[in-house]
């Protein structure tokens, strides 16, 4: 039996939502039987971004906001890898929002797990891009004056082909969503709501558990023609926030070509001979032959 958790000491606050996410994620990897050496967890900076150290597959702990860029390079070099991004709401929707949006335009086969708790925990609780206007969490000197970003609506309009929301304390449900996100061929977002017991004294466990409810299974685009209708429905659902908060899969569209497939249209041998698979030398001598290129510039 493969253990998908490392023995590294976990330094998150007691009852942090991240514990639920690391359990769901490792259970998902285990259920899917993913080879440890064929999976990579890529993260940014923040409490949640320490997660690669706790998961027993390869881990790349990168820079604030930039996890998607590193993950994209890894996946493009080796499309046989399962690449997951774990980062916080400040990381993916604040400093890294440009990459978050651009990922939708590519639809590369990576899974993005958004740890969404409304605050910048590691820097002592400043408002994150998902904290609603007017809220004053514990360490804010004044109420938040910025409007919040809706990660689901943003992902839907940016072109993500799998958009879901989970709740960190419901680990079994979150696990199932993560599994579906991993198996989806394209860019997948799972927005995982999580309380921050230390700094977010508003969106607490009690607050969420009174409000969340599970969506039905009618999320998948069945024909290309119904894509816009399904997306409109998902968008409307994504705006539902208040007394009731939906979790589950909002949208899945398998008709949009994945980025690797788009590359393969230009370079047909991409999947059979992707860069990480290539041998580029024989006993230290380059095997690449540039004579055709030199011919074009010869006089």
């Amino acid at each position: 039996m493969v253990n998908y958790k490392t023995t590294e000491y976990i330094d998150w606050c007691p009852s942090c939502g991240d514990f639920g996410i690391v359990s769901s994620e490792t259970m998902a990897l285990s259920d899917l039987g993913i080879d440890r050496s064929k999976a990579v967890v890529v993260s940014g900076i923040g409490c949640s971004s320490k997660i690669p150290h706790y998961i027993n597959v390869s881990g790349v702990h990168t820079m604030h906001g930039r996890a998607i860029t590193f993950a994209s390079g890894i996946k493009l070099a080796n499309p046989d890898l399962k690449v997951l991004v774990n980062s916080g709401d400040g990381d993916l929707l604040g400093i890294g929002v440009g990459h978050f949006v651009s990922a939708g335009r590519r639809n590369l086969d990576i899974t993005i797990l958004l740890h969404n708790n409304g605050v910048y925990g590691l820097t002592k609780g400043q408002a994150s891009p998902t904290l609603h206007r007017g809220l004053q969490t514990k360490s804010l000197p004044e109420a938040n004056i910025n409007d919040s970003l809706d990660p689901l609506a943003l992902a839907l309009t940016a072109g993500y082909t799998f958009v879901a929301r989970a709740y960190a304390y419901d680990a079994m449900f979150t696990k199932e969503i993560i599994k579906k996100a991993i198996m989806h061929k394209g860019t997948a977002l799972v927005d995982i709501l999580q309380p921050c017991p230390t700094y977010n004294n508003i969106n607490t466990k009690e607050w969420y558990e009174k409000r969340i409810y599970k969506l039905d299974d009618d999320y998948e685009v069945k024909t290309p023609e119904e894509a816009s209708e399904k997306m409109s429905k998902a968008l409307i659902k994504s705006f539902e926030w208040g007394d009731k908060i939906p979790i589950g899969i909002f949208y899945e569209n398998n008709f949009i070509p994945e980025y690797g497939q788009r590359i393969a249209e230009h370079v047909p041998t991409y999947f059979s001979d992707y860069p990480a698979k290539q041998v580029i030398d024989q006993n230290g001598k380059s095997i690449t032959d540039i004579s055709r290129l030199l011919e074009k510039i010869s006089i």
Binding site: F70, S72, G73, D273
Partner: peptide, 29 residues
Amino acid sequence: SRPVVVVQTEDEISAIGMAIGAGLAGVRS
């Protein structure tokens, strides 16, 4: 023959991030 992957990114931060990522996967990037 062998394919080379070339990606036009959203900015230079993404360009260097992707190049480092591809390097971690063992590719000359």
